[in-house]
């Protein structure tokens, strides 16, 4: 309970800080929403009246205060450029990003776990060296470059998967999956490498432990030692990284979302930024910060589940 209170306080502070910073930064952007909307041939008077209308004439603290009091009531305002309620825009784009994030993490784990385990099984074996080399090659590619390659290969050449566009889950899971597979793969193919590497090195370290020696002395077969004894204590860096990646992806899949025209959070954020649409940007930032805190919280929970020494209520800690 104590822990939950601390975490919530943490969340509030983070949210306040990032939204305030967002407001300050947007104010210094070299674009202005009123000119975007009114266009090139607008008169000075048009612009002024629009500023008035959008409430942009108030000072920065006043604007932030207004936004904050709205946000506290669950009212995130409307987009300055489209007039759409920000809450609605977020509700539409967040699921896309979450799905992408989840799928990418699952794919990355599906690659990293078996390859990492097999590599740690016999360090220095041909398999270990091969996976290390391939991984190194993949990790040195930026995800967007990989995305372009994948798109060329699977959409344009083989025509297996759509190049762009997103079908909501409500239409059908297969169409939904088809749209997300390439973007998720572009992320996963780069990300699994670091996951595999930390898992491999942690596993190798764990396999040197005395309790593994004892497990061998018990006459247990190798697979049982690996999965029952070695894997769980070797998952900490892996979980931490998955959490970090997940948090990053929440707002950082901008390029991928743009390449594949996915209407996700990253795209919403980017369009908001370029038009100085601060209610949209602030809303996105708020959601991302919330997501980050939630991710670290669940990583903490995972630690406790993995290792009894880290559980909060123990017999004697």
């Amino acid at each position: 309970m104590h822990f939950l209170i601390r975490k919530s306080l943490h969340l509030v502070l983070v949210a306040l800080a990032v939204t305030a910073i967002t407001f300050v930064m947007l104010d210094h952007m070299p674009v202005s929403i009123e000119h975007e909307i009114t266009g090139r041939f607008a008169t000075e008077a048009d612009v002024r009246s629009l500023r008035e209308q959008l409430g942009l004439n108030a000072s920065l603290p006043v604007r932030y205060g207004r936004w904050l009091s709205g946000a506290l009531r669950g009212e995130l305002g409307r987009s300055l450029s489209t007039g759409e309620p920000v809450g609605q825009a977020l509700a539409a784009s967040l699921p896309v990003t979450l799905e992408l994030l989840l799928l990418a993490q699952l794919l990355a784990l599906a690659l990293a776990l078996p390859v990492g385990i097999a590599a740690a099984w016999r360090p220095g074996s041909w398999w270990d060296r091969l996976s290390g080399t391939i991984g190194f090659g993949l990790a040195s590619l930026p995800p967007f470059a990989l995305a372009v390659v994948l798109m060329f290969l699977f959409s344009l050449r083989l025509r297996w998967l759509p190049a762009t566009g997103f079908t909501p889950l409500s239409v059908g899971w297969w169409q939904n999956l088809r749209g997300l597979l390439l973007p998720a793969l572009s992320i996963a193919l780069v990300e699994w490498v670091t996951l595999m590497q930390v898992l491999r090195s942690d596993l190798i370290a764990t396999l040197q432990e005395d309790f593994i020696l004892l497990a061998r002395a018990k006459g247990l077969p190798g697979w049982r030692i690996m999965f029952r004894h070695a894997l769980r204590p070797s998952c900490f860096s892996l979980i931490t990284l998955v959490g970090l990646h997940g948090g990053n992806l929440l707002g950082g899949a901008v390029l991928i979302e743009n390449i594949f025209s996915l209407p996700g959070l990253g795209r919403l954020l980017l369009t908001g930024l370029f038009s100085q649409d601060y209610p949209v940007v602030a809303g996105c930032v708020l959601v991302i910060a919330l997501g980050y805190v939630l991710v670290t919280f669940s990583v903490d929970l995972c630690y406790g589940a993995l290792d009894p020494r880290l559980r909060r209520e123990g017999a004697d800690g």
Partner: peptide, 24 residues
């Protein structure tokens, strides 16, 4: 051999904390 060693030969190692699995 594995069977014999698991069954009929028991071993106790030097450091009991390190030789017990911390998560079981």
């Amino acid at each position: 051999l594995t069977r014999l060693r698991g069954n009929e030969i028991g071993i106790v190692l030097q450091n009991p904390l390190a030789s017990l699995n911390p998560v079981h």
